[in-house]
Design a binder for these strands. Structure first.
Length: 527
RNA sequence: GCGGGUGUAGCUCAGUGGUAGAGCGUCACGUUGCCAACGUGAAAGUCGACGGUUCGAAUCCGUUCACCCGCUCCA
């Protein structure tokens, strides 16, 4: 999952932006999100979920698991005309350090690095050399940076000789800053190199009782690599056939330079990633398939308005190995009028498996017995290849935050102006039961209904009973928690066994037989 | 990383050197017959933390932590 950040405004004014302060206050007040270690003053970049937030996030995670692993894409067929097959794994936060060397994450961890703003290249500071005129004085002409033994060396040398004639090379570190006349290795314009910086983007730790630097390991910065290093085991041991997906969810850790924007950029966060493996020839079809489905999925759980967009990366934004990447982006109050990434869907080609094959010396080729030459006996010879991979990688904390922001609604005309309009599927409290008045047999009948509903729906979320204070306050409390349906037992209920159901969003009430309540909720909750 | 702002009860905030406050929420009792109703009462804060000045600090000074906003950054 990349970090594209907010994209530019697209014809949207900032008006109608919800107040982030009020959303954060509600999150605290109602127990959605607390600051981590709050009693000690908090810790930068870490957040905890309270009871409602934990259930909300669980519902989001469950929805992902159900719709991506258990019944992928709601049972629809993939571009190959067959049902989509996905299996789960659960891999460790700490992997062998070589995993992160192969993935490219470790590069630049221990050494000062310079970045190129133009090409997005990153170089070890002490590896960057510069061609300068032999006289030592380039005047107002640019000088040419390169990295030894890289293609950039010959290219830059040619340009430098054309500019200065006889040249010599010096270390970048010997040049005075700012380097506004330095043309970076693969860049066109001068001045694109940043100051050298130490990057400490992965958290590290030292497994083993004796503290020994040689044992240094890292907390994973993404769950995806756990899938790649086990992909061969999965296709060797589980009878899954390409094309198929492997899902992995869990915590990841990044030492973000600037944690910001509530939980949006946290140092500890949870991902839900799918790596979908397919034949190279089919990869473009699968890429489009997953991109479109993931957008549709986020809409289905309540991000249905124009605050959600699918943004295809420009060519110059793509990683060098990717031939397509899209982001599902949400217009958060703090990114408006721009957007922030919820999920990246990347065509990763065979980059990751090839990298691990090279570093581990373990063949990552898949033997596809549905392909290859047809033999006289009717079977196939089989085709061996490194599968290509489509990666829909979602951030669950960002997803939960988007659900919260989208749900937050203020309507001054309502008795309870502030309420959370969660989609029933993700709402942490699914239903509540109230005795209109706490006497005359109403509490007993309410308790009976509450028990019945709880026994039926506890797997999905809370079913609450509230008999305290006035009926209006109880409705308001449930509105703020985002509970979609409240059932009230009144005097008539005891006579004719009916109850009223109140719809959170409209405030409308209707009466139904108490026997029908369970079926009503089953339908509304899709249970 | 730079600049600005904020930090006092669960939430929103008042309190500029002399007894720690309000509204809302929460809880209890009573009342209450469908939308944050009413009455009475209660609980709840080492004033972000540490240090300094002072007879005395929520208040002044220094340091620090956290959050928000704008730049920067985001392998």
């Amino acid at each position: 999952m990349s970090e594209a950040g907010a994209s530019p405004a697209v014809n949207q004014s900032a008006k109608g932006v919800k107040p982030m302060d009020a959303i954060m206050a509600l999150c605290k007040r109602r127990g959605f999100i607390y600051q981590a270690s709050e009693i000690y003053g908090g810790i930068n970049g870490f957040w905890d979920y309270g009871p409602l937030g934990a259930q909300l996030k669980k519902n989001l995670r469950d929805a992902w698991w159900e719709d991506m692993i258990m019944r992928p894409c709601w049972g629809r067929k993939g571009p190959n005309g067959r049902e989509v097959v996905c299996v789960p794994v659960e891999t460790c936060i700490i992997q062998h350090p070589k995993v992160w060397e192969a993935s490219g994450h470790v590069a630049g961890f221990n050494d000062p690095m310079v970045d190129c703003k133009e090409t997005k290249g990153r170089y070890r500071y002490d590896h960057v050399m510069v061609f300068v005129p032999e006289s030592g004085n380039p005047g107002d002409k640019p000088v040419f940076a390169y990295v030894g033994d890289q293609p950039s060396e010959a290219k830059q040398k040619k340009k430098a000789e054309k500019t200065f004639g006889s040249i010599t090379s010096v270390a970048l570190s010997s040049l005075p800053k700012p380097w506004d006349r330095v043309i970076a290795p693969d860049a066109e314009k001068p001045g694109s190199l940043t100051e050298p910086r130490m990057f400490n983007l992965m958290f590290d730790t030292i497994p083993g009782a004796i503290r020994d630097e040689a044992n240094r390991a890292y907390l994973r910065p993404e769950t995806a690599q756990g899938v790649f290093v086990q992909a061969k085991n999965v296709w060797d041991t589980t009878r899954v056939r390409v094309p198929f997906g492997i899902g992995n969810t869990g915590r990841s850790f990044r030492n973000e330079v600037t944690p910001r924007n509530f939980t949006f950029r946290s140092r500890e966060f949870e991902q839900a990633e799918l790596e979908f493996f397919c034949h190279p020839d089919e990869s473009q079809d699968w890429y489009r398939f997953w991109r479109d489905f993931r957008m549709e999925w986020w809409k289905s759980i309540g991000l249905a308005g124009d605050n959600l967009i699918l943004r295809e990366h420009d060519k110059d934004e793509l990683s060098h190995y990717s031939c397509g990447t899209s982001d599902v982006e949400y217009r958060f109050p703090f990114t408006a009028p721009g957007f922030g990434e919820l999920e990246g869907i990347a065509h990763r080609g065979c980059f990751d498996l090839t990298q691990h094959q090279a570093h581990s010396k373990v063949k990552m080729e898949y033997n596809d017995t549905e392909r290859g030459e047809l033999l006289p006996n009717g079977s196939r010879r089989g085709e061996r290849y490194v599968p290509h991979c489509i990666e829909p990688a979602a951030g669950l904390d960002r997803g939960a935050l988007a659900l919260i922001c989208e749900a937050y609604t203020r309507d001054e005309s309502r008795p309870s102006p502030e309420f959370m309009k969660f989609h029933p599927r993700v709402a942490p409290i699914k239903a509540a039961v109230f005795p209109l008045v706490n006497k005359d047999g109403m509490p007993e009948m309410a308790e009976k209904l509450h028990t019945e509903l709880h026994n039926r729906f506890w797997r999905l979320g809370a079913v609450e009973m509230d008999e305290k204070q006035s009926i209006g306050k109880r409705y308001a409390r449930m509105d703020e928690a985002g509970c979609p349906y409240c059932f009230t037992i009144d005097g008539d209920s005891l006579k004719d066994q009916t109850v009223t159901v109140r719809d959170r969003d409209s405030g409308q009430q209707s009466r139904m037989s108490v026997d029908r309540v369970k079926a009503f909720l089953e339908e509304k909750l899709g249970a």
